[in-house]
């Protein structure tokens, strides 16, 4: 469940953040203002509050979020906001001359963005994205508070049934599990990063 939550929210975030990042660096002040407002609003409120609002605060007709859906949507939207900000930083990190050269060559805006800016921005942000992913993995534990049966929730259930010292045991196991899950992410991102650096300078 933890992995499912993390990966779905991450998938939503990594795709959904693209248009938002474009909006954040738009030259149209209204678009920029609207996206900036969204990002700051989402980031300004703790994840746990968003999850409670989604789970218990929204009722449209007979529709209510079930816990898992609320958690995925909540974590997903928060990921969109954080990743959009990371993307924007990456796009701004690409030297100005790159866009100018593309313009001078007569490349279209789309080509310039997707073939010149994005690949370079991706190299800049890939470590930050990996850091965010490990953060998200651990933040997914917040979903336990809206009765999503992920790892921490199950530890709590166990602890409640065993109110002695052994109640601690599952937390220790869960802690180790988080480490085991986040290590490969860190490792893969380092490999990816060094490979891309080689690709640029080799």
């Amino acid at each position: 469940m933890t992995i499912m939550l993390t990966l779905s929210a991450f998938a939503i975030g990594i795709v959904g953040a693209v248009p938002l990042a474009v909006g954040l660096s738009s030259s149209n002040i209204l678009v920029r203002l609207a996206t900036r407002l969204f990002v700051d609003l989402v980031r300004g409120v703790p994840i746990i509050v968003w999850l409670f609002l989604l789970k218990f605060g929204i009722q449209i007709g007979t529709f209510k979020f079930n816990p898992v859906a609320a958690a995925v949507v909540g974590l997903g939207v928060v990921s969109i906001a954080y990743l959009a900000e990371i993307y924007r930083g990456g796009l701004q990190g690409v030297p100005r001359g790159q866009g100018e050269a593309a313009n001078a060559l007569g490349l279209t805006r789309g080509t310039t963005f997707y073939r010149v800016m994005v690949p370079q921005a991706f190299r800049i942000v890939s470590p930050s994205i990996a850091t965010y992913l490990t953060g998200l993995l651990k933040d997914s534990s917040i979903a336990s508070t809206i009765i999503v049966t992920e790892m921490v929730f199950q530890s709590q259930a166990f602890a409640r049934q065993h109110p002695s010292v052994e109640g601690i045991l599952p937390y220790i196991i869960v802690g180790i599990l988080y480490i085991v899950l986040s290590l490969p992410v860190a490792y893969l991102s380092r490999r990816l990063d060094s490979r891309m650096r080689k690709a640029v300078y080799a």
Partner: peptide, 30 residues
Amino acid sequence: RRTVGMVFQSFNLFPHMSALKNISFPQQKV
């Protein structure tokens, strides 16, 4: 922009493309 080519002080080659790709890519696109 098709008529006028430009060379910059800071070169501005695309760092993620080989030299060949740097020259070929705009030809294909433009």
